[in-house]
Amino acid sequence: MVEKVPMTQPGYTKLVEELRFRQQTERQRIIEAISEARAHGDLSENAEYHAAKEAQSHNEGRIGELEDYVGRAEIIDPSKLSGDSIKFGATVKLVDEDTEAEKVYQIVGDQEADVKLGRISISSPIARALIGKAVGDSVEVVAPGGSKAYEILEIRWG
């Protein structure tokens, strides 16, 4: 059985756009760079050729990853979700119990996480600690930077 990869529609769209770019634009650019480098003669000491081949390998590897993610995508629309406990797609307002600083995070798929935008991965330590919890609950998050305690102030959908 194929394990589905949860993601939001914007996250899915971004992956499809990157896949299309890598297949149609980047692949062609790299092929042209390899052809141009080949024209310079001896390939054994041709740095341009080796760099282009390495770029090709990286691009093809990423295409494979993207095809896998897109093929296993399970698109979840947070606006259609509801409930009193935290799950994928929830936007959660927390207060740090030590500093009183408030933070807002949306729990999203691994490929669309961007902590600077307040989007945390479903598999991150903080998201794993929040799943299943409700407003008023306190959670202890054990992260690489140490342990933090948060109180859940609000859960929003969509």
Rank of each mutant, 00 (worst) to 15 (best):
H50K: 14
G158D: 02
I63F: 06
T91G: 00
G145E: 05
I76E: 09
I34V: 14
I152D: 00
Q56W: 03
A143N: 06
M1N: 11
V142C: 01
I34L: 10
A33D: 14
I31G: 08
N46A: 06
F88G: 15
E48V: 14
G145K: 04
A73G: 11
E17M: 09
R119F: 15
I152V: 11
G83H: 02
T13S: 12
D114H: 10
V5E: 14
G83K: 02
D77M: 12
Q23E: 15
S147R: 11
I30G: 05
S124F: 15
I75Q: 07
G71A: 13
D68L: 13
E3S: 12
Y105W: 03
A129S: 10
R72N: 09
P78E: 10
S138W: 09
I131S: 05
Y12C: 04
A127T: 03
R62H: 13
K133Y: 00
S123C: 13
A55N: 08
K133T: 01
V5G: 07
H50G: 13
H58D: 07
G89V: 00
K103A: 03
G64N: 12
Q9T: 09
I30W: 12
L117N: 15
Q23A: 03
T25M: 03
R128M: 03
I31Q: 07
F21Y: 14
M7Q: 08
P6F: 05
Q28S: 05
G118E: 12
R38I: 14
E102P: 12
Y69E: 07
Y12Q: 05
A90P: 03
D96I: 01
P125H: 03
G146E: 02
Y69S: 05
H58P: 10
G41Q: 08
R22M: 14
Q111E: 13
R29D: 02
K87S: 12
I34A: 08
R38S: 11
E112V: 01
L130E: 00
A39V: 06
A37D: 08
P144D: 09
Y150V: 01
Q9F: 04
A149F: 06
E112L: 01
E112G: 08
K87M: 05
M1P: 15
S44C: 12
V95Q: 06
A39N: 12
L117G: 07
E100M: 15
S123Y: 14
V108W: 14
I75H: 07
K93G: 00
D114A: 08
Y105L: 07
S147F: 05
A149I: 04
E36C: 06
E3C: 07
I155V: 11
E45D: 15
M1W: 11
Q111A: 09
V115A: 11
S138N: 09
I75Y: 01
D77K: 05
D137F: 09
E100C: 07
E48D: 15
G83C: 09
L19W: 01
E154Y: 00
V141M: 00
I122Q: 09
I122K: 01
V5S: 06
D137W: 03
G71S: 11
G145A: 11
G109Q: 07
V16P: 04
A52E: 10
G118K: 05
A129D: 04
I122N: 03
A39D: 10
K103Q: 10
Q24S: 06
